[in-house]
Design a protein around this nucleic acid. Structure first.
Length: 351
DNA sequence: TACTCGTGGGA
DNA sequence: TTCCCAAGAGT
């Protein structure tokens, strides 16, 4: 065992966090947790994980559920393809693996939603296999420990970091090793202002010796985020509201929304209302008369920002889309929606 | 390779 | 307010 691994495991033994998914070695529970934790904070995941495991305690229960209900439990967690892939993978596990997750990284990676990291995490944590699991935390910690100057998102950087992770993996202790590196990255070796005085690895850390901690890891600079203007139609009839289901691929796939459209840049409500009328005709086959403005708000996604204007509309003609549905205002919670449309739903509920 | 895909917390 | 970014995967 290398010095790094020895110091790391000694630290982890009495510093490990107690988390819901660490109280079991049920591969299904580990799998669900790992997928929920992709690009998502631990504190955010905890209540979703507990609710999910109560509703879908087994692979079989998940496989038997409808996609609508699966998305409903995922609502608010973001990156909804994770939920759809988890659902699809559960059905594959039932059909091809007898309801049990395979204890093999290649077989795991063949399942939708399980990539290199998640396969390594499940293999090591749930099955005790000697597999590395390189996530954002491990990349940052290892890049600092070994002064990796290559960009961590480059092919060369990836190869180097995965091999470093594997080289230092203590045989038979991959579960502790992987989680220890992640905990260290989350609590001490943080992106900004790492607490090196509290770090069990500072004496073997190249970045600490050189004083270049905050310069690592090297990442690609981000471009500018565009800003779009959307207008949403609130069409009501006898206490019900018209919703549209988004395509299953792409942004907020499979979720419900108030029919809306991305407009060209606009300056005010009146201009947005005119543009909305035209956009709904082409986008949804809806003829509407635009009424009062319900207000507007801004929202930021990962790669763009939007300002959304919402209008109360009267329906003149309906399109032929099968993805359109009238929903009772009081039952809107049964429809999984993204944050923006949930915001509009509150306006509708409030009158 | 480069881009897409959400959300909420903290500096 | 604005920006970064958090247990990545799919295309």
């Amino acid at each position: 065992m290398t010095d790094m691994a020895r110091l790391l495991l000694a630290w982890y033994r009495h510093r490990k966090r107690t988390l819901p998914w660490r109280s079991t070695r049920d591969p299904y529970a580990v799998w669900v947790a790992e997928v929920m934790l992709q690009q998502t904070r631990v504190e955010t995941v905890i209540p979703y994980f507990e609710h999910w495991m109560r509703r879908f305690p087994t692979v079989e229960a998940l496989a038997a559920a409808s996609e609508q209900e699966v998305l409903s439990l995922w609502e608010g967690l973001g990156y909804y393809s994770r939920a759809r892939n988890l659902h699809r993978a559960a059905r594959v596990v039932m059909e091809r693996h007898g309801g049990k997750l395979p204890a093999d990284v290649d077989a795991l990676r063949a399942l939708p939603g399980i990539g290199r990291y998640t396969a390594g995490a499940i293999a090591s944590i749930a099955f005790g296999l000697d597999e590395p699991a390189l996530d954002g935390n491990q990349k940052r910690v290892l890049a600092r420990l070994f002064d990796v100057r290559q960009r961590v998102d480059s092919a060369e950087g990836e190869r180097l970091l995965w091999s470093l992770a594997r080289e230092h993996l203590p045989p038979g202790k991959a579960a502790e090793y992987n989680q220890a590196l992640m905990d260290l990255g989350a609590s001490i070796c943080t992106p900004r202002r790492p607490d090196c005085t509290a770090c069990p690895l500072r004496e073997v850390c190249r970045a600490h010796a050189l004083g270049v901690q905050e310069a690592l890891p090297v990442k690609k600079p981000k471009g500018e985020t565009p800003h779009y203007v959307h207008a949403a139609a609130v069409v009501m009839r006898e206490g019900r509201v018209l919703l549209a289901r988004r395509p299953s691929q792409g942004l907020l796939g499979g979720l419900w929304e108030f029919p809306n459209a991305r407009l060209a840049q606009v300056k005010d409500d009146a201009e947005a209302a005119r543009a909305l009328e035209d956009a709904l005709e082409t986008g949804y086959g809806l003829g509407v008369r635009v009424g009062a403005s319900l207000g507007s708000f801004r929202h930021a996604y990962s790669h763009f920002r939007v300002t959304v204007y919402a209008f109360r509309c009267a329906l003149l003609s309906t399109g032929e889309r099968t993805s359109l549905e009238w929903a009772a205002v009081g039952a809107l919670d049964g429809y999984p929606m993204g944050r923006v449309d949930r915001q509009i739903a509150r306006w509708v509920d409030g009158g």
